[in-house]
Design a protein around this nucleic acid. Structure first.
Length: 204
DNA sequence: CCTATATGCGATTTACATCA
DNA sequence: TTGATGTAAATCGCATATAG
């Protein structure tokens, strides 16, 4: 038999309209009262069970939802009579559909943010490993400068080695690449004070 | 303002389908 | 067959808007 007729048998409880007027918001603990099932109440025929909407009904509702997520009462009544449903069912369907849509959007947004987060974490790791490599390079440069400085100190005043001087200058120039790096300047200046200024003055 | 009514939303319950 | 679980439909309580 026609499924739609079966659906017609579903009498949904019409809204009682008993919207008790709004008690002022209870400040803290507001226990949600347990609801008792409205079994065979005045608006509920006994034995009438909840039925899923037919695929055709859902298709039409989906189509309408795609156009407009809100439901004006005119459209609600039109859909209800077109589908053989209680207008309240149409309203409830739209309400639940909006909730599902919102959930889906939130999930999409969450997964977008998650992938952005993952990419940022990866980039952070890469940058950190680059920092480690550069620090190692810097440390090598410091050692090299120190080594060259000691060699210069060891030379006699009348036999300046121009190639050695150039080496030291190169190393210093390398450090220059790290301009603005405070601890680099600090160490470099120390080297100057301890070794550099002396040997530079010697040959100027 | 006050009241009634309609509607929306979040949270929850209920009925039903499906699967192990 | 049955219990666990997922999901759509329905309900409830509250907020807000609007009309009279």
């Amino acid at each position: 038999m026609n499924k739609l007729e079966d659906e017609m048998a579903l009498i949904s409880p019409s809204y009682s309209g008993a919207y008790s007027q709004i008690a002022p918001q209870q400040a803290e603990a507001k226990p949600r009262r347990r609801r008792k099932r409205n079994k065979g109440g005045e608006n509920n025929l006994p034995g009438v069970k909840k039925r899923k909407l037919t695929q055709e009904q859902v298709d039409v509702l989906e189509q309408n939802f795609g156009n407009e997520h809100k439901l004006e009462s005119e459209k609600k009544d039109r859909l209800a009579s077109e589908l053989g449903l209680d207008p309240r069912q149409v309203a409830v369907w739209f309400q639940n559909r909006r909730a599902r849509w919102k959930n889906k959007k939130l999930e999409e947004e969450f997964s977008k943010l998650q992938s952005i987060h993952d990419a940022v974490v990866l980039e952070k790791c890469q940058l950190e490993s680059e920092v480690i490599k550069l620090k190692e390079k810097l440390s090598e440069a410091h050692k090299e400068i120190q080594r060259l400085g000691e060699r210069v100190d060891g030379l006699s005043i009348n036999s300046p080695s121009s190639s050695l001087t150039m080496e030291a200058m190169d190393a210093a120039a390398f450090l220059g690449e790290f301009g603005g790096h405070e601890d680099v300047f600090y160490i470099a200046e120390n080297n100057y004070n301890i070794h550099g200024m002396e040997w530079i003055n010697l040959y100027m």
